[in-house]
Simulated scan of single mutants.
Amino acid sequence: MSDVKSLMLEEAGQSPSVVAGLLEKETSTFASIAKLFADIKPSVVSTAARGSSDHAATFFKYLFEIKCGIPVASIGPSIASVYGAPLQLKNGVHFTVSQSGASPDIVALQETAKKGGATTIAVVNVTDSPLARQADIVLDICAGPERSVAATKSFIASAAALAGVTAAVSGDQDLASALRKLPDALSSTSGLETAAAEDRLLQASSLYISGRGPAFAIALEAALKSKETAGLHAEAFSLAELMHGPMRLIDRGFPIIAFTPEDAAYENNAAALAHLEKLGASVISLSTRPSTGLGLQSTTTGNTLLDPLVSLLVYYRIIESVTRRKGFDPDKPANLLKVTETV
């Protein structure tokens, strides 16, 4: 394995400063979005995104529904770009999440959402992109250039920015306080010993990654990174879903990575993982407290719904190391480009 530090690892390590910067710089944008919600009182929110950005939108869905009680629905970009269908979104709010803001399909859907009556908000890293130029409100994730194909700091920044939206709209001071602590919690993950977890993944040919609520969105992101960087097949499931059909594949040594924050689902998650261990699963838990199986413990932000973002940075370091130990370049995955433009 090369000792040269990858761009993926370097950029993931920039996440604490990126989050701190965006929370400071985008204060007025958060306030504008909160005012928008207060003025129009939407009964539903829609989102559109691809890849890692879609996982950030899923994180937002769970967080926003829990804290604000407003349903959040994901709309497939092909509804507009391929099928040309109109949308009825009168008095709605539509978020598009994109690092580049360049893919034609999400730009087309944002235009369709606007024509359908929605106020559009672009959550982007490139503020002079086609998506941003067309949007009613632009929320800059302030991640700066990201050269590795694998999105790390831009994902964490997108999720943090959307958590900032949630805190502003809900007025939840606990969430706002936790966001201010998020950069320090992310920084505290540096130096955590992960070799045992890496060794288990090096021996794997397939694995499950699980979580519930906002942590399920983090599981989706983790599974994508496993596939695109390490070439390791991974499927993400809610732990509730994993206890159904997918459990059929569990046998001796089958790896399961579980994001298990100390939220309302923690006790149910712990019971499920204990059962899976009895079936032979090799469980790796990422949490803020000692947990089932091989536990990797991180610092809490003070809000259990936000803590999976801290655990994700631990995971990014694990999968980056596994990728290099397998002889792959995490910055240049086979068959992939940094910006993918789809229709």
Rank of each mutant, 00 (worst) to 15 (best):
Pro145Ile: 00
Lys338Gly: 05
Ile106Arg: 03
Ala236Pro: 10
Pro130Trp: 13
Gly92Trp: 01
Val283Glu: 10
Ser154Asn: 03
Met247Trp: 08
Pro145Lys: 04
Gly213Cys: 06
Ile218Asn: 04
Leu162Arg: 00
Ser148Ala: 12
Ala157Asp: 10
Val82Arg: 11
Val18Tyr: 05
Ser2His: 07
Thr29Pro: 05
Asn269Ala: 08
Met1His: 02
Gly231Trp: 07
Phe237Cys: 01
Asp128Glu: 15
Glu221Ile: 03
Glu341Phe: 03
Glu341Gly: 09
Ala185His: 09
Ala230Ile: 00
Gly69His: 06
Phe37Tyr: 13
Thr29Glu: 01
Thr27Ile: 08
Gly245Phe: 09
Gly213Pro: 01
Glu146Trp: 00
Ala102Lys: 14
Val124Asn: 04
Glu26His: 04
His233Glu: 13
Leu279Gln: 14
Thr27Ala: 14
Leu336His: 05
Val107Cys: 12
Glu10Ala: 12
Asp3Gly: 00
Thr260Ala: 10
His244Pro: 07
Ser285Trp: 11
Val97Tyr: 10
Val18Gln: 02
Ala48Pro: 11
Glu10Trp: 02
Ser43Gly: 15
Phe60Ile: 04
Val72Ala: 04
Ile250Ser: 06
Arg324Pro: 03
Ala143Glu: 06
Ser190Gln: 10
Ser158Pro: 04
Gly213Leu: 04
Ala274Asp: 13
Pro130Gln: 09
Ala73Thr: 15
Asn125Lys: 08
Thr96Trp: 11
Ala118Asp: 12
Ala222Pro: 02
Gly51Ser: 10
Leu220Trp: 00
Lys227Ala: 13
Ala38Cys: 12
His275Ile: 02
Ala160Gly: 08
Ser6Leu: 00
Gly213Glu: 05
Thr152Ser: 12
Glu193Gln: 13
Cys142Tyr: 11
Ala217Trp: 01
Glu24Ser: 12
Asn91Tyr: 12
Arg324Asp: 06
Leu162Phe: 03
Glu221His: 09
Ser158Gln: 11
Thr342Ala: 15
Ser238Ile: 09
Glu198Thr: 09
Thr120Phe: 10
Ser170Asn: 11
Ser291Gln: 13
Ala234Lys: 02
Val124Glu: 04
Gln110Gly: 11
Ile70Pro: 07
Asp140Met: 04
Asp174Phe: 04
Ser282Met: 08
Ala135Ile: 01
Glu10Lys: 11
Thr152Pro: 05
Glu262Asn: 14
Ser46His: 14
Ala222Gln: 03
Gly293Lys: 08
Leu182Lys: 06
Ile209Phe: 13
Leu179Pro: 06
Ala132Tyr: 11
Tyr208Lys: 05
Pro183Ser: 09
Lys227Gln: 14
Gly144Arg: 08
Glu320Ala: 15
Ala223Cys: 05
Leu313Val: 00
Ala31Glu: 15
His233Lys: 07
Arg50Phe: 12
Ser17Ala: 14
Lys41Gly: 08
Leu192Pro: 06
Leu202Ser: 03
Tyr83Phe: 13
Pro145Trp: 06
Asp128Gln: 15
Gly13Met: 09
Ser282Ala: 14
